[in-house]
Amino acid sequence: MRIAMANDHAGFALKTEIAAQLRGLGHEVVDFGTHDENACDLPDVVYPAALALSRGEVDRAIFVDGVGYGSAMIANKVPRVFAAVCQDPFCAELSRSHSATTALCLGGKIIGSALALEIVRVWLTTEPLTDEKYRRRVDKVVAIDARHVGDATPGPTAV
């Protein structure tokens, strides 16, 4: 599986550990940065990674920032990207099985590496439920996304 990764300075160390785990499991990591602990602006790294996911250039994405919410807010603005913040394996499992998330957001200041690695493992190995009830719910979210988010063509930068 090709997995996009992006992080800010607060998520650098945890992203590095997760990327090593993913590579060890045979996944290809496409690293959008940042590549050190110097302060940076999260949209500069999460947005391009989310666009790659939206365009099908990667299969899934994992974003690591201080608490996870900044990454989720950015990623969920991009069409066909469905991101969830998960702080434990149970939430990771439900985000995939019930909601078919395609991006996982983690908080490097919130959880330690052992827990994060387990969350990633569960999220990667859980498939969406296919019974009618869950498929119907996911389809409704996908329809809302199509109506309101638009396409994955970058627009002008806000001033």
Rank of each mutant, 00 (worst) to 15 (best):
2 R>Q: 14
3 I>H: 09
4 A>M: 13
5 M>C: 08
6 A>F: 01
7 N>E: 07
7 N>S: 15
7 N>M: 12
8 D>C: 00
8 D>Y: 00
9 H>N: 05
9 H>C: 01
9 H>D: 04
11 G>K: 09
11 G>C: 12
16 T>N: 06
18 I>W: 08
20 A>P: 05
21 Q>H: 03
21 Q>T: 04
22 L>W: 10
23 R>I: 11
24 G>A: 00
24 G>E: 04
25 L>E: 14
26 G>D: 08
26 G>I: 11
27 H>G: 00
29 V>A: 00
29 V>G: 03
29 V>E: 02
31 D>M: 06
35 H>C: 01
36 D>Q: 00
41 D>Q: 06
43 P>Y: 12
49 A>Q: 09
51 L>E: 08
52 A>W: 13
52 A>M: 13
54 S>R: 14
54 S>W: 13
55 R>A: 06
55 R>L: 11
55 R>T: 02
56 G>L: 10
56 G>R: 11
58 V>Y: 13
58 V>G: 05
61 A>H: 11
61 A>N: 10
62 I>R: 05
64 V>R: 01
65 D>K: 03
66 G>K: 00
66 G>D: 02
66 G>V: 03
67 V>P: 02
70 G>V: 04
71 S>E: 15
71 S>N: 14
72 A>Q: 13
74 I>R: 00
75 A>Y: 11
76 N>W: 10
77 K>G: 07
78 V>P: 07
81 V>R: 05
82 F>K: 14
83 A>D: 05
85 V>Q: 02
85 V>G: 01
86 C>W: 12
87 Q>I: 13
88 D>I: 11
91 C>Q: 15
92 A>M: 12
92 A>Q: 14
93 E>L: 13
93 E>A: 13
94 L>P: 05
95 S>Y: 10
96 R>E: 08
99 S>A: 11
100 A>D: 15
101 T>Y: 12
101 T>C: 12
101 T>H: 08
103 A>L: 07
105 C>V: 01
107 G>R: 02
107 G>T: 04
111 I>F: 00
112 G>T: 05
114 A>T: 15
114 A>P: 06
115 L>H: 01
119 I>K: 04
121 R>F: 08
121 R>A: 07
122 V>A: 02
123 W>A: 03
123 W>F: 05
123 W>G: 01
126 T>G: 04
127 E>N: 07
127 E>T: 10
128 P>L: 05
128 P>F: 07
130 T>F: 07
130 T>P: 04
131 D>R: 09
132 E>W: 07
132 E>D: 15
133 K>L: 04
136 R>V: 02
136 R>A: 00
137 R>H: 06
138 V>A: 00
138 V>M: 09
140 K>Q: 11
141 V>C: 02
142 V>K: 11
143 A>Q: 12
144 I>H: 09
146 A>R: 14
146 A>K: 14
147 R>H: 14
147 R>A: 15
148 H>I: 12
149 V>A: 03
150 G>D: 08
153 T>R: 14
153 T>V: 12
154 P>M: 11
154 P>C: 08
154 P>D: 07
154 P>E: 08
154 P>W: 15
157 T>L: 15
